[in-house]
């Protein structure tokens, strides 16, 4: 009687080990994919590590690798900002450019203020116009009060 129960226990233990091994194998196989950020967008987004790079200020977007994505091709506007006017400082690139394009898609005209990144600002302007809205570009330093006053005056002239 005692012998039979020992061998039954042995069977259970070996069953448990089999289950354990199977799970361990699965874990090892899936560990790599668990370390990656999830992809839940309508398209694949780049995943770090990105190449090391260091560029001189003021920061030009066109030299970045990978190129930042700002076009949001799957996002459809619905006139949430219809005929509004948005001044965006640092609107030439980065978050500012993405905002400029999506504000335009929602129906706003955009004024892009930038320090010295002419080529980036031109890309943003073209993208805003591609959304069917107007884009005014003004270059200068927001740390200077006189420039900010001038930028608002030019906005009022153009869209006021």
């Amino acid at each position: 009687m005692a012998e039979a129960s020992t061998s039954k226990a042995g069977t259970t233990v070996s069953k448990q080990r089999r289950i354990q091994k199977m799970v361990a194998r699965k874990d090892a196989a899936s560990r790599k994919s668990q370390d990656r950020p999830m992809q839940t967008g309508a398209r694949r987004y780049p995943v770090p590590p990105f190449p090391k790079q260091h560029y001189p200020k003021p920061g030009h977007e066109r030299v970045l690798d990978p190129q930042p994505m700002y076009d949001a091709p799957f996002y459809r506007g619905s006139q949430k900002l219809q005929d509004k006017v948005a001044i965006i400082t640092g609107g030439d690139s980065g978050i500012g450019r993405a905002v400029a394009v999506l504000f335009a898609r929602e129906g706003a005209d955009v004024v892009v203020l930038h320090l010295a990144e002419k080529a980036d600002a031109a890309v943003t302007k073209a993208a805003v116009e591609g959304e069917g809205r107007q884009c005014l570009v003004v270059a200068g330093d927001v740390a200077k009060r006189a420039f900010c006053e001038k930028a608002v005056a030019r906005t009022l002239d153009a869209f006021g």
Partner: peptide, 21 residues
């Protein structure tokens, strides 16, 4: 208040972006 975003502002600084999930 965004977390790290891949833009030219950051690339003037550090080479690698940090992830927070």
């Amino acid at each position: 208040a965004p977390g790290p975003v891949w833009t030219s502002l950051r690339q003037g600084g550090r080479g690698r972006i940090q992830i927070r999930l």
